[in-house]
Structures are given as structure tokens and as C-alpha cells.
Design a binder for these strands. Structure first.
Lengths: 349, 349
DNA sequence: GTGAAAGCGCTAACAT
DNA sequence: ATGTTAGCGCTTTCAC
């Protein structure tokens, strides 16, 4: 180990060069692992590097190389487990390839999303993994297109004509939820979600509806969708129950909806699964710890991140195939929050 | 708006200069807002910038300026609400000052923590906000010291002789929890946490213990601390209850401990607050939604982030005062998970 | 095998 | 008020 004091200026490649008695170009070659350097000189360089504690300045290096080894990641938020895990995974895949991940939060704002994207473009990132606030047809994707940026879209997307997309297979997972609920004799089910604008939300709803109706044509499916605002959803849900509606199960299409549903159940003194069943899209650590444990659709974060990065690096390497839309299979974890209405309560007529 | 196509090379300052018929230096001045440029030329520059869609390359700019407008943030994880909120806040404070935040996860590994720090040093970040895996005396802080980096330590720290520190006032919050529990007639309380190594863990435990004993000298406080591993804690907790121990309340010193406690209660069929009361350090969104809602100590994330950034920028600006250790007051939210043993169960002898 | 020279995109002195 | 020059720290021809 080199012993160095606190200091202002770090040793540059020239410092190493003069200590080793060679030119900066040679040092550069040694650092890059070029084999055509005379072993003796290489060793002198290595020693000088060690002695001075020299490390390449990645930014200066990238400046010269024209393509920067930085990947940008834009998430709608950092506060949820899902996106937290996503960033962790993306970071780790980026590092495996010698890139640095720079993550930013659009805080659910499309305006901010585009600003951040512009900043990433200024940074000349090699590529961007964008989890759009709404879907693939937002201003951010348009910006990327217009500026010839290379990127991959994830999460709230289904497919795009310019970029590869990777997301959870919402429709299949929802169909499986439908099979489970129908199989447990639920015939009046409420689906809650955000506005139908999001393509994935629609896929979840339709996947559920189609499967449920195929299995039980007599099933009644109510839908409460709110416009992009959780508090609105809460109000609408309250209204819905206030009208006397009494579904035997609720399927929430997104995490916060599950929280809202739970809290509305609580407000009314209903317990799962005896009074009502609950399944949510998106898992969270606490869901298996509460009583009852909450049934959930688990998104394959690692696979999404992995395939997104794979696709991105293929594009960075110059791949020119038409965009691919990937759907990763989810797991449906049936937990205690789902019961059978025939067992626990008088069947509603 | 400028209309540009997808393209390989973005316009550089020289492109703007030649279009505007001035030198690059003049363009640079206009971009920097220097007022000594002839208005007519300034306008020509502005027009050219608009036309070409020119934007400064921040990395090239920083390279020349010697000090980079990048702040590094190192968190132990991204998956929890707390650190997610922290990153969001830090990002926003950094942007307010024209800096970009580059966040990285040490994934609870001290080795990785130091590696990341070294990478941030390579990047010549202006400063680092470090939430250390263990505490202020780890290898990361030592690395920062040895390399003369400027930084601020947050979260799992109490004070340091080289860096400013900002964290939640664990001891006071725990004392308040003690007052609440003692006031509700709890006289046998179990405290669960991770190894006493973490200074903040110790502060939480001691703050609790001291306050509880001062109010009720006869109180029995059991402590189950595990060595940095949540599964170990689970096993120890299981053993503890298996021995027949029957505290009336549990105080968890950290979030995952609260989850573990809850799941162990479930395993034994105990419900809060009738069978046992529960308070946890660290709040989470789900805690107010489950039944019962879980009482929690809420950390002032925004204040911690804000003061950390304030301190950091003061140091970046050259402040040389001795390090300051800040403690931010928490809020204790008593929710339904806390009851009174005298009301709900035979008092244990 | 190696180094001199050029230059990535920018800014800061210093002339003018 | 402006342009010229000289780099920031690095990599990359391209002669030698």
C-alpha cells in the first residue's frame, strides 16, 4: 500500500511518467494493459503508480475517449422497495461492465423526467435506463428519440417503436390472480388502480378481467380507477363502499392501492380474509410479516434489471435490430389475506 | 425551440463560436453570464446557442475548473424507505446548488463502502455524504481522512473528530419511548437490536434504559442484541420466547427488528396490543395501514439531509471550524400497537 | 517499444 | 470588449 497524506492535487499521469522515467503515453498503455510495453518499463510504471497512489481520473479519461462509461438511470421515485431494488441491481450490473451508474429520481413528474434526461444527455452518458413516470409515449422517450440517445425503457411500458422495453408480464400475472380468486369462489371482485392511461395498468386490468370471465362468466368485476393520485383513489374507494358495495375480494393493481385498500378495510373494521380478501400487485417485505400476510404479485426485479442492461449494452455496442419488447414472468404469492367467501361469510346475493 | 435531428456529435463551444462569429472565450463568458460582453455579440451567441441546441458539457467544464460540481452519496442500501427518502432529499438539495448527486449503495459491506469511496475520490467529487455501514470509526472515514476528502457523516454516527456528523437524536427519542411505555404500566420490556457496536444502537438502548429506570426503578429490561445479522436476531428472539419469557412490550431499535418481532408474534399467535405491545425505531408507510397500526419513532429525514448538505457546502467553501455533531429531534408516533398490560392481560408476577 | 504531438470540450489569464 | 494562448488529465495516432 502506498502511504500518502491528505493533499490538494492528486498525482497525474505525468507525475507517474516522470517518476518512472517514461512518457505519459507509456503509462497510459500500461494502465490499459497493452502488452507491447517492455516488461522492465512496465514494472517501473507499476512501481511508480504504487508509490504515488496514482489512479486514473475516469472523467478525464472518458473526455478523451469520446464515449463515457456512465449509465444513467431515471426512476419515478426512490422510496419504494421496488425501485430501490431496481437501482441496486442496475448499479451492480453496470459496475460489472466497468460503468458507473448515475441514478436520479423524476419524483413522478414528467417535466422533471425530461430535465433529468437532458442533464444526462449533457453528461454524454453511454446509455439510459428509463422507468418513465407514465408510459413509453411520454416526452422523455420523445426527447431520447429526437437526440439520438441510446436507452432502454422499463417498468411502466409494454413496447416501443424506437427503444427496447423490459417489464413485468402484468397480464399473465393478473390472469393468475384471477384464476386463484375464481378458484376460491369469489364472484364479486373489486379492482382498484390508477388511471387507465398507463399501458401496464390496462394490461393488468384486462388480463385479470379476461381470465376471470373465461372461468366464471357470471363474475361481477367492479373497477375503481383514480387519475394518478392516491388520495383520489382513497376517496373513490370510500364512496364505493359507502354505497353498500360488498365485494368478497379486492385486487389492487399497484402497491399504494394495496395500502389504501388495507387502510379502508381497517376504517370499516373489516379483517382479511374473513370479511374480505386482498391481493396486490407488487410485493413488499412487510407483507409477509403482518397478520394476516398479504398476498401479492412479485415482480422479477433482478431479471428486469439484467435484461434491461443486456439490451442497453447491446445497443451501446452498436446493435441495430428492431426494438425488442420483453415481458418477464412474475410470481403470485397467495398468502393469508386471501380466503374463500363460501367458508367465511354468507354469500352475497 | 431548436429543431435538431438525432446525431452523433453534439455541437461544441467552437461550433457556437464560429456560428456567432466570435471566439470560444466569448461564448464561455456569455454562458457564464458575464456582463462585460457587448450586447449585440451576446445576442448573436444566444441565437447560435438556440439554433444549434448547444449545452455546456458539465464534465469538460469541471475538468477545466479543477473543482467538480458533483456530490457523492454513499448509503448502506437503497431498499428501505428511509434511505430512499434520504437520497431523494440529498439529490434535491444538491441540485439546488447546481451540483449533481451521484449515489451509490455499499450494500451493508464495509469493504464495498471503501471501494465506492475510492471511486468517488477518483471522480474528484467536491464532497461526500456518507452513511457508514457501521459507524464513524470505520475504514471509509479513515480513507476520507487519509486522502483529505471533504465529507459529512450521517445516520449511524454520533460524532467524529474529523468530519461533521448529522443524525437522529436516538437517545432522546428512546427516552420518550420509555416514558410512554412506563406511563402505560409496562414493567417488563424487551429491547431488540443489532450488536452494541453501532454507536447509535447503544445510544438508543442506553437512552431507553436510563429513562425507564429513572421513572420506574423496578422495571425489568431484557435485551436481545444480535451480531449484525437479522436472521440471528430472529433465532435469538425465538429462543428468548421459547424460554417462557413474557414481556408486556417490545421496543425494536431498528426497522428490520420491528419486522422480525412482528413475525415472531404472529408465529406464536400473539396480537398487538392485547397480547403484547410493540414500538419500533424507524417509521414506514405500511405501519399506519396495518391493523393494528405500529407505533414508531420517525426520523427527520429532511432535516438530516438539509443540515448534512449545509455542513458539506460550508466545508467545500473552505470552512475550517472544528467538526460539529448535530442531533436532529425525532417524533414518536404512538399508535395502536401500544396498549396497557393492566387493561388487557393478567399482570405477570 | 516508445514518445511527441494533437486534441476531447471547456475556462481562465493575459494581451490587445 | 474580445481573442489568443495555455492548459485541466487523459488517450491516441503516428513517426521514430
Amino acid at each position: 500500500m502506498a502511504h500518502r497524506q491528505a493533499q490538494q492535487r492528486r498525482p497525474s499521469i505525468h507525475d507517474v511518467a516522470s517518476r518512472a522515467g517514461v512518457s505519459a503515453a507509456t503509462v497510459s498503455k500500461v494502465m490499459a494493459g497493452v502488452t507491447t510495453v517492455k516488461p522492465e518499463n512496465a514494472q517501473r510504471v507499476i512501481d511508480a503508480v504504487e508509490l504515488l497512489g496514482y489512479r486514473i481520473d475516469p472523467l478525464a479519461s472518458d473526455l478523451r475517449r469520446a464515449k463515457r462509461r456512465i449509465i444513467g438511470a431515471i426512476m419515478p421515485e426512490f422510496e419504494s422497495e421496488f425501485f430501490g431494488q431496481m437501482v441496486t441491481q442496475l448499479e451492480s450490473f453496470a459496475e460489472q461492465r466497468g460503468y458507473t451508474l448515475v441514478a436520479a429520481s423524476s419524483r413522478e413528474s414528467e417535466a422533471r423526467e425530461t430535465e433529468i434526461l437532458a442533464r444526462m444527455h449533457d453528461w454524454r452518458v453511454a446509455g439510459v435506463v428509463l422507468a418513465p413516470v407514465r408510459n413509453e409515449h411520454g416526452p422523455a422517450a420523445a426527447f431520447m428519440k429526437a437526440n439520438g440517445m441510446t436507452g432502454v425503457l422499463i417498468d411502466r411500458v409494454l413496447s416501443d417503436d424506437a427503444f427496447d422495453t423490459v417489464s413485468a408480464d402484468s397480464a399473465s400475472a393478473s390472469a393468475e390472480v384471477a384464476r386463484e380468486l375464481i378458484g376460491k369462489d369469489h364472484r364479486h371482485i373489486l379492482v382498484v388502480g390508477l388511471s387507465e392511461q398507463a399501458a401496464t395498468g390496462r394490461a393488468r386490468l384486462e388480463g385479470f378481467r379476461a381470465a376471470a370471465r373465461a372461468l366464471a362468466p357470471d363474475v361481477r368485476i367492479d373497477v375503481v380507477l383514480a387519475e394518478a393520485d392516491v388520495e383520489t383513489l382513497r376517496a373513490q374507494l370510500r364512496d364505493y363502499f359507502a354505497k353498500g358495495e360488498r365485494p368478497t375480494a379486492v385486487y389492487s393493481l399497484f402497491l399504494k392501492g394495496t395500502l389504501v385498500a388495507l387502510s379502508e378495510f381497517r376504517r370499516r373494521g373489516w379483517h382479511c380474509p374473513d370479511d374480505i380478501s386482498l391481493v396486490g400487485f407488487d410485493d413488499a417485505e412487510w407483507m409477509q410479516v403482518t397478520w394476516p400476510a398479504i398476498a401479492a404479485v412479485v415482480q422479477p426485479v433482478r431479471q428486469i434489471a439484467g435484461h434491461a442492461m443486456e439490451a442497453l449494452f447491446a445497443r451501446i455496442a452498436g446493435g441495430e435490430e428492431p426494438p425488442i419488447a420483453r415481458l418477464e414472468p412474475c410470481k403470485v404469492l397467495m398468502r393469508e389475506s386471501v380466503g374463500s367467501p363460501s367458508l367465511s361469510q354468507p354469500k352475497p346475493t
